[in-house]
Every structure is written in structure tokens, then in C-alpha cells.
Design a protein around this nucleic acid. Structure first.
Lengths: 119, 119
DNA sequence: ATAGTGCGCTATTATTAACATAGCAACAGG
DNA sequence: CCTGTTGCTATGTTAATAATAGCGCACTAT
């Protein structure tokens, strides 16, 4: 198991482990944000339900991300299956602005596509 | 050149290409958020200055991320070197809540570490 | 013309992460 | 015992990233 990023320890982009860089290191891995996002939206669910929600994630990667997010304290594996913690929910909410921008992005691309062929 | 994620096209986590999943696919790559973050903080700068700011990014990866972010429309390569676009600045601002949570995370870890040995 | 500098990258090789698929061990119900 | 579901691991393959060296270009000074 590779080391899990955490504030205070050397991470990608910051040898001193600045919190934001540790966060980037943790969430900047394949499926990390997607898993957290889906887990929040689905509510507590099983490994396989989460795997389904992600459409095409392999169990090995899902397990890695779950382990990392669990050690980070963003999710737990309790009664009703996997679920986000309070901290995890905060992270989810911190991703909401990104969702908003992504829609702006989609519109910007739609406009530039429409304009590039006719004008 | 591998394909760059964009809303509307099949991406990791969404075959239909939902904007947020496209965003996750784009930003969920090594260094992607870090590069955008540093570029915004540094202001317009050269390839090598940006490489320095990232402490330990290889030129190949930096170039890949820059290409992807450029195609996405988050950054441009103009007069003063590389710099974020208006859309890129919006993405940066959307990452600010994540920075805030990362500090909460750091404190949570510090507290749990302090408590785990004595209690 | 030549040498030096900084620029944005590319080439190369090695290592690591991720993918895809199959399947295990544990538990529950019948 | 048989079937189904659970969380998860093993395996072989492919893609991504790392680490380092260095290229071609433009500019400057000599």
C-alpha cells in the first residue's frame, strides 16, 4: 500500500505538507473525488452498490480509494455500509462550487463549438 | 496525445459526460489542481518558473497538464507566459473551499494524533 | 560568425498506478 | 449442501508518471 497523503507530511507539491497540497494529492487520484461524490449522493451503501454507481471502476481501485479516504477520515465503514463522515461531508460541500463551474465550462464549450463552424 | 476530458463526451464516471464528472476526470490527474493553483498564485510565468513553483514536477507531466488545461480553456500561453483565463480563475476560486476544509482536516488530524497517545 | 543564455519542450528508460477479469473467504437463507 | 451476497484479493496487461538528459529556437553580446 502506497503512503496516504496527509497534511504535515511530504506530499506531491509540498515537501512540508501544506494542507491544500495534501488535499490535492489525496483527491488528485483517479476516482477519488468521484467516489466521495457518489458515496455522498447515494448515502450509505455497499461496496458493490458504490461500484455500480461509479459505472466503471475496478474493485481494486475502489478499494484503494476507500482505504485512503477512510484513513483520511472522510468516510467510514459502519452499520449501513460505507458512508461519509462529517468531515467527508464538508469535503463534498467544498466540491459543490466545482460542480457549478463545471456547468459554466460546459456552456462555454458549447458556445465555442457552435461559433467555430459558422463564424 | 490521450483524450482530454470535456463535458458531453464519455469520461471516467459518466459515459454521457456530466460536467462534474468531466471536471473530476480532468482535475483528478496528478498535478492538475496543483498546477492550476500555483499558476494562479504566481501570476503569469514561464514554464520553468512554474516547474520551480511545483517543487518536483517533471517537464513531461507539466507539459501534459498544461496542454490539457489549455484545451479545457482554463489557461492560455500568451505574452507574459502561461496564465489562467477567466474560466481558469473561476476554477481556482472553486478550489478555495477545498483549501479551507484542508485546514480543518489538518486540525482534525492534529487533535486525533494528540489524543491517541495519551488517552 | 560564434558563444552564451534562457525559453518551451521532447526523448528515453524505469517505475508505479490503474484496468479488467476471475475468484476467494465469510456469512445468510433455504 | 447449494445459492446468493458481502467485501475484497490475485493476476496479467496496459497506461500514466518519474527522473534525467538534451534538442531547436530566439536573443544578446562579442
Amino acid at each position: 500500500m502506497p503512503d496516504i497523503p496527509a497534511p504535515g507530511k511530504a506530499v506531491r507539491g509540498s515537501r512540508s505538507g501544506s494542507p491544500i497540497m495534501a488535499m490535492f494529492d489525496l483527491l488528485g487520484r483517479r476516482w477519488a473525488m468521484g467516489v466521495l461524490w457518489q458515496l455522498y449522493e447515494q448515502g450509505p451503501c455497499t461496496f458493490r452498490a458504490l461500484q455500480d454507481a461509479c459505472e466503471s471502476i475496478s474493485p481494486a481501485v475502489l478499494n484503494s480509494r476507500l482505504k485512503e479516504l477512510r484513513i483520511a477520515g472522510f468516510i467510514i465503514h459502519g452499520e449501513g455500509g460505507y458512508q461519509v463522515t462529517d468531515l467527508g461531508a464538508e469535503v463534498y460541500r467544498a466540491l459543490l462550487p466545482l460542480s457549478k463551474v463545471s456547468k459554466t465550462w460546459a456552456e462555454a464549450l458549447a458556445n465555442s463549438d457552435a461559433g467555430s463552424s459558422s463564424d
